[in-house]
Computed example of a mutant assay.
Amino acid sequence: MHGPGEVFGGYVIEGVLGHGGYATVYRARHGSASGGAVALKVLDEQHRHLAQLARLRREFDFAHRLDHPHVITVYERGAGWLSMEVVSGGNAAALPTVPDRLAALTQIADALDYIHNHGIVHCDVKTANILVHQDFRRDGAVLIDFGVACAVTDDIGYQADHIEASIPYSAPELLTGHAPSGATDEYALACTAVELLTGTTPFTADSRLGQIRAHLHSAPPRRSREIDWLPRVFDAILAKAMAKRPQDRYRSCREFISMVARALR
């Protein structure tokens, strides 16, 4: 861990913003007098193996190709660290109202369609990877963490030795080692939408294996039976976005979320 006032990679650390499974994110400023605030993601010393370094490099390289208001902006990368824009309002679950959460989902759907049009699949869409700005109404939500993203061209000879994405949001094709596509992110966005609108992801088995089996074999639960304000059409919309076969889902993430927003008006 690095303390306030310490200089790292040319940045002066101000404090800790958060800590994940393998890295700490600091609020920092560039060493120059005019330096603005950045989020500095630094791999923990015990997590600087080749796989983690490659993931961080991948995270930077994919995000650096993109220019979208709801995709994280990255600035610089060094050995075991990267700097990016500060997004300080927590993740999308911090938003207090359903309309705000729908607005965030709409923004992220637009970002996902944008990255798909640029030949990139995020592969880890989830609530924790949707951050919101402090002034959400003005600045909105941001999709972060491209560490397990892949290029669509990677599907030639694609092989997945192990699942890197988060199981509660993972599409069947991701779980069975098939090449991901934009429809894979749509499935994960559907799981995220269910969580943001109802409080839990669609499949809530206690074990990892139970969740995998549900994604592979079970229909999404009909949440309108449990939640009075959810219309029955929401269940049908969700069932299509979470179809087991990618080709049976909506043509785009925006189409899916626009259907959800229309149903909840």
Rank of each mutant, 00 (worst) to 15 (best):
I115V: 15
V74H: 13
D124K: 12
D155Q: 11
L105M: 11
A111I: 09
E76L: 08
A63E: 10
L95R: 02
A109I: 04
G90Y: 08
H30G: 15
I156A: 14
A205C: 03
P96F: 00
R232M: 11
H122S: 13
A111R: 08
N129S: 08
V152T: 14
P168H: 10
T200Y: 08
G21V: 13
A141K: 03
Y187E: 06
G119I: 14
Q134K: 09
R213Y: 04
L197T: 03
A104C: 06
I120R: 05
P220C: 00
Q211K: 11
A111D: 13
Q52H: 15
T192N: 09
H47W: 15
D235N: 10
V98S: 00
L82V: 04
G21P: 13
V7S: 12
G80H: 05
F136K: 03
F203S: 08
I227C: 02
H162Y: 11
L43M: 06
L189A: 10
V25C: 02
Q134N: 03
V98R: 10
E173C: 04
A23R: 07
D145I: 09
H122W: 12
Y250L: 04
A39Y: 13
S170T: 15
G9F: 07
E6T: 13
H2E: 00
V12C: 01
A193L: 00
V152S: 05
H133P: 07
D110L: 04
H133W: 08
L216W: 07
V260G: 06
S258M: 08
A188K: 08
A149W: 06
L112D: 13
L50N: 09
L175Q: 10
A193Y: 03
H68P: 13
H162R: 11
S258P: 08
I227V: 15
R225F: 01
I144S: 02
G157Q: 00
Q52E: 15
T106H: 11
G89S: 05
H118F: 09
G90F: 10
E85H: 07
D113M: 08
A23F: 12
M242A: 04
A171H: 12
M84V: 07
D139L: 03
V142N: 00
R29S: 02
V71M: 03
K41A: 02
E186K: 12
E76C: 01
D124R: 08
D155S: 14
G10L: 01
L131Q: 03
H178M: 13
G5F: 03
